[in-house]
Amino acid sequence: MGGVIRLRIDFGYDGGAFYGWAKQPALRTVQGEFEAALAKILRLPADDPRLRLTVAGRTDTGVHALHQVCHLDVDDAAIAACVGHMDVEPVEALRRRLTRVLPSDIALHRVSVAPEGFDARFSALERTYVYRVCDAGTLRDPRMRGFVLRVDDALDVDAMNEAAAMTIGLHDFGSFATPNPGGTTIREVKYAHWDRVPVRPLVAAGPDAVSDAVAHYVTPTAESGLLCFTIVADAFARNMVRSLVGACLRVGTGRRDVAWFRGKMAEPKREGESGPCPPQGLTLEHVAYPPDDRLAARAEAIRAVRTL
């Protein structure tokens, strides 16, 4: 008799043409495209509940992911049927078929049998997001407009980092986020910092003919000069990262001071000045999990509602 296997799926996507992760009627979403591809491969109805993916973190409309994780519970017989004429293991056969069927703005990294106790959402220890900004004085690269926010002002990075430092620790981010029904805006931020990417050459100087040929023009790496906000937390509430970025940018342009940001942290109350900035600059970069023997315990602990 066959059983059910839990699969871990690692992937990324360009969020520009998606209305976020979560499946919605008549809208193109990452979950909708992924589950449609699985339905085709596994020969199941598109609305079959067995296709439902559980994701590490839902991203909003226009937000990207370099490294996203989800899990799927599927009959081992359905996976075995993916092999066909291929001389590979069933899970590898599923990965190959998914790679061919998924649209080009979703990149499949890995499909594997999940260890016991693994839950893509609740087992996660932390998520890392990066928000990229091109401000005044930085060369604008039009090719990167899909995942970099353009800001016409010169930004005060020291002031922005003074504000960002206030977010580290366990806080109620009610000024910057919207809770889910029955949820909370209390989160633990482990790292938050703005950094300017150095202008680095693509080809290092050296004694060889190639480096001599480019000596008169140093080709920069693609992200050179960008201002990047990296934030790591156990989890994020809806709109939390983009709202924090928006508030930092108000401080960085001098429209608001650090004391204003401190007040927003002290009094968790939503108002118009701490709304989210545009989505295209935001990317989910990484999801971290504990060792296999601690996955189930982590999932159980994180299900509890956070309190200060």
Rank of each mutant, 00 (worst) to 15 (best):
V4F: 08
R6V: 12
L7V: 03
G12Y: 13
F18W: 07
K23Y: 12
R28I: 08
E33L: 11
F34N: 08
I41D: 10
I41N: 05
P45E: 15
D47K: 05
A56P: 06
T61V: 13
G62T: 06
G62A: 03
G62Q: 04
H67K: 14
D76C: 07
A77C: 05
A78L: 15
V83L: 02
H85M: 11
H85F: 09
E89G: 14
R96C: 07
R100W: 02
V101D: 11
P103N: 09
S104P: 13
L108T: 10
R110Q: 12
E116K: 10
E116R: 13
G117P: 03
F118H: 04
F118L: 08
D119M: 04
A120R: 01
S123F: 11
S123Q: 12
S123V: 06
S123Y: 10
E126Q: 13
Y131T: 14
R132P: 00
C134L: 10
G137I: 03
R140N: 09
R140I: 14
R140D: 11
D141M: 06
R143D: 09
R145N: 08
L149R: 12
V157H: 07
V157L: 14
D158G: 04
M160E: 12
T167F: 01
L170Q: 14
G174D: 07
G182T: 03
G183H: 07
G183V: 11
T184V: 13
K190R: 15
A192V: 01
H193Q: 14
D195P: 00
R196D: 15
P198I: 07
V203G: 03
G206L: 06
P207H: 05
V210Q: 06
H216T: 03
V218L: 12
T219P: 00
P220C: 08
A233F: 02
A237V: 07
M240G: 01
R242F: 07
S243A: 13
G246I: 00
A247L: 06
T253W: 02
G263W: 03
P268W: 07
K269R: 15
R270V: 10
P279F: 11
P279M: 11
G281E: 02
L284Y: 13
E285N: 04
P290V: 10
L295H: 09
E300H: 12
I302S: 15
V305P: 02
